[in-house]
Design a protein around this nucleic acid. Structure first.
Length: 206
DNA sequence: GACAAGATTAGCT
DNA sequence: GCTAATCTTGTCT
């Protein structure tokens, strides 16, 4: 079904990272399995900027883990955290800058039976994809997809955009789960979408 | 080598 | 709301 969708090209990701974060809302994160797709509509994102942003993995020097963030835009940056979980990001901006957008939550759009296979027995429907690592479990995303090109619909993970655009309001807030750099208003989500992670910051309009 | 911290989640109070 | 689980990564020695 996603063959006929628009696929944002590298130019989409080359722009300002905060702009890309907002523009990713409403688009689809698609996971291609052998002959089927699973996909979520992106409803919540966070921007991480290289250099001046102490919360970013690219705050310091280039290391083995963060090197993908410094590479070309339009790639996936997947990392492993807390001994259990994966998070999925899209690399943005010019090569060498070290910018990325974390996909924090999604709304199931296709293949939810497949997602339930990879993430069995969620407490309820929302629990399937309402968190950065829940999303990765449901779509079976792991380090194998690190650095893969998400502008190529032949690959096992890519971003797609419906030709029919939904209208929605975007809310900006502080980012979640950080100790350092938590003051930056770099989190964006679709207003009133039930899959957005619940948090006290959701009521803070910036 | 050793050690502390981490862009989270699940489970319990 | 609070906290343990769990292990990779980066930094320091």
């Amino acid at each position: 079904m996603f063959e006929n969708y628009e696929i944002p090209d590298t130019g989409f990701y080359l722009r300002d990272t905060l702009t890309v974060s907002k523009d990713l809302l409403g688009k689809f994160l698609v996971r291609k399995f052998r002959s089927r797709y699973a996909a979520v509509k992106i409803v919540e994102t966070e921007a991480y900027i290289g250099g001046h942003d102490p919360a970013s993995h690219a705050f310091g020097r280039i290391t083995k883990r963060n090197s993908v963030m410094y590479g070309p835009a339009g790639r996936a940056y997947v990392y492993f955290i807390y001994g259990n979980y994966f998070c999925f990001n899209t690399v943005c901006g010019k090569e060498g800058e070290g910018n990325a957008v974390l996909i924090r939550a999604g709304e199931p759009a296709a293949g939810s039976d497949l997602m339930k296979k990879y993430r069995p027995r969620p407490k309820n429907e929302l629990e399937l994809t309402n968190g950065p690592s829940k999303l990765c479990m449901a779509l079976n995303i792991d380090l194998e997809m690190n650095s893969s090109d998400i502008t190529n619909p032949e690959n096992s993970v890519f971003i797609a955009d419906s030709r029919k655009k939904d209208k929605f309001e975007i809310i900006t807030s502080k980012r979640i789960g950080l100790n350092k750099g938590s003051d930056f208003p770099y989190r964006f989500f679709i207003k009133d979408n039930p899959y957005v992670t619940r948090h006290k910051f959701n009521n803070v309009l910036l």
